[in-house]
Design a protein around this nucleic acid. Structure first.
Length: 781
DNA sequence: TACCGAGTATTTTTT
DNA sequence: ATACTCGGTA
């Protein structure tokens, strides 16, 4: 036991050894929060305060869950199998797989990822003849997910106008469609298991009795539903050990609710709020910059990072004339670092938005420096992989219409849009899956559809006793996917990915502890679509059958899934790596969001310009600026030894040159920690005396916004821009248009007769208007 | 059915 | 600039 606790600092030690009651650990960047989390688990188990099966560890990403599990295994010689450690979604999937009947789901229910969900919604709208212009599928998707994350079913959503009432109706129709097809989306995983535990008292008590210790990572990122879910599992007696950092909350835009931290403190009567403020990552100047910057935020729980490392190098600041020059400069700095022996892997270029990577990439290519861009398509999201998965889904669940539609005519087999429309009409008329509706289609269309169905049934029969990798391999051939990509000019990569899918299946079997020769599916489903009800009724047998086939000692939880169902869940829940090219010693390029949780010896934060970072859109959002500042805080705290901040006076964006001012964040950093590589030009001097720094209201952006940006006199558009400004047009300005009504200027561009203003109208959204034509009136306030 | 051109929309993203 | 979607035509 002493070993376990050795090398912990006093705060870490206090956190790890807290008594069994709910606690909030405010863990700053680089303060060893993961270490505390896993040491806490190990300490609980070693001291026999908890058994492995009493532990519930929740994270947001699969990566974090995996790391927790691996580090735990190195720390403790025990087997971690009894523990439930995983993502919210992964754990909910487990719960629903185990209790699919109580949850009202078919055993082979499948998980829709975001793209699947969207195509499901599009199909729904088409079937109902809904005007997609008026009710854009994306908006409906957002509406549905939002409602679900507030734990609201259609009958609970408040709709005050006809428009929203229609949305609610469509939400209800979408739910019915998912239920009919035996699929759940991401939010549904959470909501279903939340409702299951709410409704089923015995089940709830069972799990409450089991999980005496609940530990949550990245607590600041939880949404309302996740918080409610945790609360439900905790019940009256279990404790929650919540670790998080309100200063690193950067996901409000997708529903994260930092307020959960305060609610948690209050509702769980947290007596111990422990702050981990000792930072083991960054040198002093870097930390100072981070501390001073974040102190500008008002809604904080409060925390200051400190380090034993010296001040180290100052934060270097560079002002470039253009984005190209900025990229050129950073490549030179990078060269110097590499010459000093810094590994390329230890150098990162961070930016606010993905579009900014391009100019940096160009410079790196020209300089011959290897680099890696994060954020592309992930493995399981590639079209060829999704096609193969759709076949797999159809084999496992014939009622999955999303999968059906995806591959019914891929590779092409002469089934056109007309036939499919006819088919979906029939399916709707008979209220049955597309696969079953094929029987009602007559004529030539009917026979091609019949052949497709026959193909699926044949593959299902042929693979009945196959293990998962063999099944996947066989399917890739039998479906015609392999032949299709062989004939395609650019198909080589896709073929390789399909081979990789076989490997992924193989790896999945090993990782999950399935016996290698266990069949991928256990129950015969050869009767096709009509077999679905029988499958749903066969639950207990199925579990026994899989248990029998699974590795000795495998948990029921894993065994409650067939290898195929498990693999399909895995594919939806863990989309895989999203790096462009893996391997090799390469410089890392990514958005700041993607960099959260990572650290690098040297970090370049680029594009620090008003409008870009803080992003102009954040002006319109509640607490938008504070979130941008937290993002900046995250960016700064990624750096261990060297931090470079840069901005450019002009930048190519959306095919247009924009002139920006340096980010306000420079004014919030301690001058003493900075070293300006270019002369620092005072805001006042640049702006012809305009250096108002009033509070930020609805026009905070206007102070440093695009239109007000000082432009070197030599640049051609300067005079015109000024003229526009003289006319009173500036970003943030409220305007009125006779047709579109009230709005706010969000951008200005062009010159003379071409001068245009971008206006965000309250009722009509964003529009570009030519100033010479549009009758825009200024609204004074 | 495949390809082309017009139109459009470009903050951040995990599950 | 660019990437993606959609609808029309070969």
């Amino acid at each position: 036991m002493p070993d376990l606790l050795a090398h912990l600092n006093p705060e870490q030690l206090a956190a790890v050894t807290l008594p069994n009651e709910s606690a909030l650990i405010l863990a700053g960047a680089g303060s060893g929060k993961t270490r505390v989390l896993i040491t806490r688990i190990a300490w609980l188990i070693e001291g026999r305060q908890a058994s492995p099966s009493g532990i519930l560890g929740v994270t947001f990403t699969n990566k974090a869950a995996k790391e927790m599990l691996t580090r735990l295994t190195t720390l403790l010689p025990i087997n971690t199998r009894g523990m439930w450690i995983g993502t919210f979604h992964g754990l909910c999937n487990r719960l629903l797989r185990t209790h699919y009947r109580e949850a009202g789901l078919p055993q082979a229910f499948q998980i829709l990822d975001t793209a699947d969900q969207l195509s499901s919604i599009k199909r729904l709208l088409k079937g109902l003849n809904v005007d997609e212009e008026k009710y854009p599928p994306k908006n409906l998707q957002y509406f549905i997910n939002n409602a679900k994350e507030e734990a609201l079913r259609p009958d609970q959503v408040e709709a005050n106008d006809a428009f929203n009432r229609r949305f609610v109706e469509l939400y209800a129709a979408y739910e019915a469609q998912c239920q009919r097809e035996g699929v759940v989306d991401f939010a549904e995983l959470l909501l279903r298991s939340y409702e299951l535990l709410t409704r089923d008292v015995a089940l709830r008590q069972h799990y409450q009795a089991r999980f005496s210790h609940i530990l949550v990572d990245e607590f600041q990122d939880t949404n309302r539903l996740q918080y409610a879910w945790l609360k439900l599992l905790a019940g009256a007696h279990n404790s929650i050990f919540a670790v998080g950092d309100d200063d690193q909350s950067i996901y409000a835009f997708r529903g994260a609710n930092v307020g959960n931290m305060r609610d948690f403190e209050r509702e769980f009567h947290v007596r111990h709020l422990i702050k981990l403020e000792q930072n083991y990552r960054s040198h002093g100047h870097i930390l100072d910059a981070a501390n001073i910057l974040i102190a500008n935020n008002s809604k904080r729980l409060g925390k200051d990072l400190r380090t034993d490392a010296g001040y180290g190098e100052p934060v270097r600041v560079y002002e470039a004339a253009t984005d190209t020059q900025e990229a050129g400069w950073l490549v030179e700095e990078m060269r110097a670092l590499i010459n000093q022996g810094v590994s390329r892997l230890d150098i990162a270029v961070l930016y606010r938005s993905n579009a900014q990577s391009r100019v940096v990439e160009h410079a790196l290519v020209a300089a011959g420096i290897a680099y890696k861009v994060y954020g592309g398509l992930r493995f399981f999201e590639r079209q060829e992989v999704k096609h193969a998965l759709a076949y797999l889904r159809l084999i496992d669940n014939p009622t999955d219409d999303t999968a059906f539609m995806r591959v019914v005519n891929f590779p092409t087999r002469g089934i056109g849009a007309r036939s499919l429309e006819q088919l979906s009409d029939l399916a709707r008329a008979h209220n049955c899956p597309l696969a079953s509706a094929v029987a009602y289609v007559t004529g030539k269309a009917g026979s091609s559809l019949g052949q497709f169905l026959h193909l699926i049934e044949r593959i299902r029969a042929e693979t009945r006793l196959m293990n998962l990798p063999d099944l996947v391999r066989h399917l890739v051939q039998a479906s015609g996917l392999a032949a299709h990509y062989q004939n395609e000019r650019e198909g080589q990569d896709r073929l390789e990915n399909l081979e990789e899918l076989v490997n992924a299946a193989s790896a999945f079997i090993s990782e999950e502890g399935f016996r290698r020769d266990a069949p991928a599916r256990v129950l015969p489903m050869d009767a096709g679509a009509t077999a679905a009800p029988a499958v749903a009724d066969a639950g207990a047998d199925m579990v026994d059958a899989v248990l029998d086939a699974a590795a000795p000692g495998a948990t029921t939880l894993v065994a409650a899934m067939t290898p195929l169902a498990g693999f399909l869940s895995h594919a939806s829940l863990e989309a895989g790596d999203n790096q462009a090219q893996a391997g090799q010693d390469a410089v890392q390029l990514m958005t700041i969001h993607a960099a959260k949780g990572l650290e690098f010896t040297a970090v370049f934060v680029t594009g620090l310009e008003e409008g870009l970072f803080p992003h102009e859109n954040s002006a319109a959002e509640a607490d938008g600026l504070e979130e941008e500042r937290r993002l900046m805080y995250v960016a700064i705290t990624r750096a261990k030894e060297r931090l470079y901040l840069s901005f450019a006076q002009s930048r190519m964006l959306h095919g247009q040159t924009r002139y920006n001012v340096r980010s306000r964040f420079f004014d919030e950093l301690p001058e003493g920690a900075l070293k300006w590589l270019t002369a620092k030009v005072e805001a006042g001097a640049r702006w012809g005396g305009r250096s108002d720094n009033a509070g930020w209201g609805k026009d905070w952006f206007a102070r440093g916004g695009v239109a007000a940006a000082p432009v070197p006199a030599a640049l051609p558009s300067y005079v015109e821009r000024n003229r526009a400004a003289e006319a009173g047009f500036r970003v943030g300005q409220a305007v009125f248009h006779t047709k579109f009504g009230e709005g706010t200027v969000t951008g200005l561009e062009g010159s003379g007769a071409d001068a245009r203003a971008q206006v965000n109208f309250k009722r009509h959204g964003q529009k570009w208007l030519a100033l010479s034509v549009a009758k825009l009136q200024l609204i004074e306030d």
